[in-house]
Design a protein around this nucleic acid. Structure first.
Length: 881
RNA sequence: GGGCCGUUAGCUCAGCGGCAGAGCGUCCGCCUUACACGCGGAAGGCCGCAGGUUCGAACCCUGCACGGCCCACCA
């Protein structure tokens, strides 16, 4: 016998062990296939609630399609996580008093490899505990051998097609991480800063000559190459072409006219520092200005900065400002809020830095991706993400893919020591780097035999971009690739839509000529209950592994899924696990009840739904059918939360509260045939509902289904029709029951005390209720129930009005006249306001003239019943004794 | 500067043209032999504001306000 309260722990342990030992369902090709590739979590530690959400959604989809008979493939995996992972390792080294330099590259990478293995083990275990039905034999890692082969193949192909190039460009540099970043890896942060107004005097003239520039970064003035003004700016027309003396430095710089200058901002004159500002770099290019690097990769001032060399960016700023002020060049200082670029991994202010990097040319890659979304070959759910996605693809600039870190795929490029110096700078104009996994034998340019490999690694997102093809063995033309690519849906958060989703589209289209996934389901971020992002520093991180022992994995999944509206963030409160935990217990007990009403030894012929159905049976079967259809539609459109809510309501509010209760009449009764019918419906409907619920709550449902299995027989598809007639009849039973229960509660009739009821009224409703009298008797605990077409109110009775009938309940001695009058008056007031509202609509000539017929009929009927109710209440009040 | 999303019951959110819904919380009864992680009953809403379209608007349109997010080269 099952325990009274559901205890998730033993069930989960048992199921996990069982799933471990059983092969995933084999090829059932009849109903097609469903392929999903996991967004591989970084190997930076344990999984968080966001991962739990992501996994729960995918698992629900995969299990759902598996139920439908599809061959499902869900590929697990992890991502080496580049900078993020390296940072984690560096932090732990620091705690041990070491640095990556002290370890050396080989040892550092070796340690990361071993950490990775440990971390992958943790992640796998966590995924299993959540119940994720992944195909573990396919487990992949972005830095394992197969994936490395794909990375090399992709790099080589892009190189050969001229889409990869090396060049000196202004890139986003994180001085803390010591590496270049791509544009999307830079986040914007509003910071309060200042706007310094600095006078740049005309060369050879006095302190008051020249013009005043406004800047937020005075320290970069040391590298100024010009001052720019707008060509149409009348204030400065005369000075364009003249030369200025750069304060503190003494260098002469020109005044140039450039349309990029915003005349209305600041003073309308902008200092141009090509080596330290992206816009200035552009201007510098147009006017052939020198790019003077005054800040180095370490964030400190270079030798070019003269007296400031060696100072940090921040210290140099202070000193420059002080010196400008001392020299009388500082005109004024204003407070100024502006957005500063910061590293997405460590929030350090980004330094635009001129350096030699590897880039991927994006235009040709983006074009097919744009076409795919515009043609609908690729769709995003919710669709409102499509517009920003398209915009992003249109504006795409080249992708800086080299990173000056150690953890990642080493760039497969070799430099000949004759053609290049040790820092990779070309010694001769025709020098050409060689792409290969190994050093080439001879340099095709100079015949040299001595090579060194590029020290940089590739952006971690480069390997991620190849994920949907690399997991199936690309560049080999594998069977997997042929059968499983393109995949069906990618489930991920909006925060990596550009960083990852767009790039997979581009690479998939480039190398496989078709989209890597037809749909992207974008879910939100799991936040804390105040709506803040979960972060270690805020201390508001909720660990899924803390929640599972307390509430169960099914409850955690169901909680997240119930809130997983496409694209919406989830403010997560631990309280949200209570409902789902209780729900699991409810299911458990419903099944326990059903089982307890079945013989211990399963019958030779399992219980089926066949003849002899009564209203409650027809009703629940019809409701089941409509619930199932709803679920199919919602899951099809990825509205997981709606689907979860629907099945919850069906099981609890319909199956348990009404059908199961009504079944008790027959189960406790004496009619063996009726008993069998009731058992059949209970078993079949419950089992089928559990099956539909299993994608959401796999542990408990599988456990219970296993217990039910020997009893479950057929519930034929023909019988699974929505049944509006039964729904209507049942709704009357429910309405009348509720009215009588309400009356009992208001008049404090103890629940255990039976009542006698006289129902007065005629018509179809009366007839149908009369037919269901046993239901009413049972549900409202009525000892005698009489129906009459007309009749006066019996003495000392309370009254309930429902379904066009008046129910009199004699309550000698129990009835408090004043209380009853008050209750009835309240009812009457409610009925009157209802009638007024509906009458206003039903009698409105405009409504009658223009509204569609069914709508009018509905309004008419509603008015009639509101009127009946009011009259019945009025009569009752008049007769009140 | 552009774009997107949100504003509905005390809290967290569904609903997105035809009499305002759920979960949690609150109040009142109940250990009614499946479940007190439960059962029954209730209270609680100018559906952000102002216009418009419509017979009819929480829902569609236009503004506005307040939150949040994304993108963007005002130094």
């Amino acid at each position: 016998m099952l325990p009274k309260t559901y205890d998730p722990k033993p069930v989960e342990e048992k199921r996990i062990a069982l799933w471990e030992s059983v092969e995933a369902p084999g090829a059932q090709t009849a109903k097609g296939s469903f392929v999903v590739v996991i967004p591989p979590p970084n190997v930076t530690g344990a999984l968080h609630l966001g991962h739990a959400l992501n996994l729960s959604i995918q698992d629900a989809l995969v299990r759902w399609r598996r139920l439908q008979g599809a061959r499902t493939v869900w590929v697990p995996g992890t991502d080496h996580g580049g900078i993020a992972t390296q940072n984690v390792m560096e932090k732990s080294l620091k705690a041990a008093g070491e640095t990556r330099m002290s370890l050396g590259r080989d040892e550092f990478v070796r340690r990361l490899r071993s950490w990775t293995e440990e971390c992958r083990g943790t992640i796998r275990k966590q995924m299993k505990r959540l119940g994720a039905a992944l195909d573990w034999e396919r487990d992949a890692f972005t830095m394992d051998q197969d994936r490395a082969r794909a990375v090399f193949a992709a790099f080589k192909a892009l190189w050969e097609d001229g889409l990869v190039y090396r060049g000196e460009r202004l890139v986003n540099w994180c001085v803390r991480c010591g590496t270049a970043l791509s544009d999307i890896e830079v986040e914007r942060e509003e910071r309060k800063g200042r706007l310094w107004h600095i006078r740049y005097p005309e060369a050879g003239k006095g302190r008051d000559s020249g013009l005043v520039v406004a800047t937020t970064r005075p320290e970069t003035m040391l590298g100024d190459a010009a001052v720019a003004v707008h060509p149409d700016d009348a204030r400065y027309r005369a000075i364009v072409g003249k030369r200025l003396t750069l304060p503190l430095v003494g260098r002469e710089i020109p005044v140039v006219a450039d349309a990029a200058v915003e005349a209305a901002f600041g003073t309308g004159a902008v200092k141009v520092t090509p080596a330290h500002d992206p816009d200035d770099f552009e201007i510098g290019g147009r006017h052939k200005l020198a790019a003077i690097k005054v800040i180095g990769p370490d964030g400190k001032m270079t030798a070019e900065a003269g007296a400031y060399a060696g100072l940090s960016r921040e210290a140099a700023r202070d000193k420059v400002v002080a010196d400008l002020e001392a020299g009388g060049f500082l005109v004024k200082t204003e407070d100024h809020r502006h957005a500063v670029g910061v590293c997405y991994r460590c929030s350090t202010t980004i330094e635009p830095l001129l350096s030699e990097q590897w880039f991927v040319r994006m235009e040709e890659l983006a074009r097919p991706a744009l076409a795919a979304i515009e043609k609908g070959d690729f769709r995003i759910f919710p669709a409102n993400w499509e517009k920003p996605y398209i915009e992003w693809l249109r504006r795409l600039k080249d992708w800086c893919v080299s990173r000056q870190i150690w953890w990642g795929h080493r760039i497969p490029v070799w430099y000949c020591r004759t053609c290049y110096d040790e820092r990779g700078a070309a010694r001769r104009p025709d020098a050409k780097p060689q792409v290969g996994l190994e050093a080439p034998a001879r340099c095709p340019v100079c015949g040299g035999r001595d090579f060194f490999q590029d020290p940089d690694v590739l952006d971690t997102w480069f390997s991620s971009a190849l994920w949907p093809i690399s997991v199936f063995g690309w560049p080999e033309e594998t069977d997997d690739l042929k059968s499983f690519y393109p995949t069906d849906v990618l489930v991920t958060g909006y925060e990596i839509l550009y960083l990852w989703v767009a790039r997979m589209q581009m690479m998939g289209l480039r190398f496989r000529k078709s989209v890597p996934f037809r749909h992207a389901l974008i879910h939100g971020i799991v936040r804390d209950k105040k709506g803040r992002k979960m972060s270690k520093s805020l201390g508001n991180v909720v660990d899924p592994l803390d929640m599972i022992p307390k509430y169960g994995a099914d409850a955690l999944r169901f909680s997240l899924l119930s809130q997983a509206h496409p694209g919406r963030d989830i403010p997560f409160a631990e309280d949200s696990l209570i409902g789902p935990r209780n729900f699991a217990n409810k299911i458990w007990n419903a099944t326990r009840f059903v089982l307890s009403n079945l013989p211990e030894t399963p019958p030779a012929k399992p219980y089926a739904v066949s003849g002899g159905l009564e209203l409650a049976d027809r009703w629940i079967v019809g409701e089941f059918a409509s619930m199932r259809r709803f679920l199919e539609e919602k899951i099809e459109s990825y509205e997981i939360a709606s689907a979860a809510g629907e099945i919850y309501g069906f099981l609890w509010d319909k199956f348990c509260d009404w059908h199961l209760e009504l079944s008790k009449i027959r189960l406790q009764g004496e009619d063996p045939a009726a008993k069998e019918t009731a058992r059949g419906v209970l078993v079949c409907v419950l089992a089928r509902t559990l099956r539909l619920l299993s994608p959401f709550m796999p542990f408990i449902t599988e456990e219970l289904l296993e217990a039910l299995a020997p009893y479950v027989g057929r519930l034929s598809e023909e019988d699974l029709k929505e049944d509006s007639k039964s729904r209507e009849e049942m709704s009357r039973v429910i309405e009348a029951t509720s009215a009588l229960r309400s009356l009992r509660a208001h008049l404090n009739v103890p629940p255990g005390r039976p009542i006698r009821v006289t129902a007065v009224g005629n018509g179809a409703a009366a007839e149908s209720l009369k037919a269901q009298a046993p239901y009413l008797r049972f549900l409202a605990k009525i000892e005698s129930l009489e129906f009459s077409v007309s009749g006066a109110k019996p003495a000392h009775s309370a009254t309930a009005v429902a379904c066009g009938l008046t129910f009199y309940v004699p309550l000698e001695g129990l009835i408090d006249l004043a209380k009853e009058r008050a209750r009835l008056e309240k009812e009457l007031a409610k009925a009157e306001s209802e009638l007024q509202k509906i009458a206003l609509k039903a009698e409105n000539p405009e409504f009658l003239a223009r509204a569609p017929e069914p709508e009018k009929a509905l309004a008419h009927a509603a008015r009639q019943s509101a009127r009946d109710k009011k009259e019945s209440l009025l009569r009752t009040l008049a007769e009140l004794d």
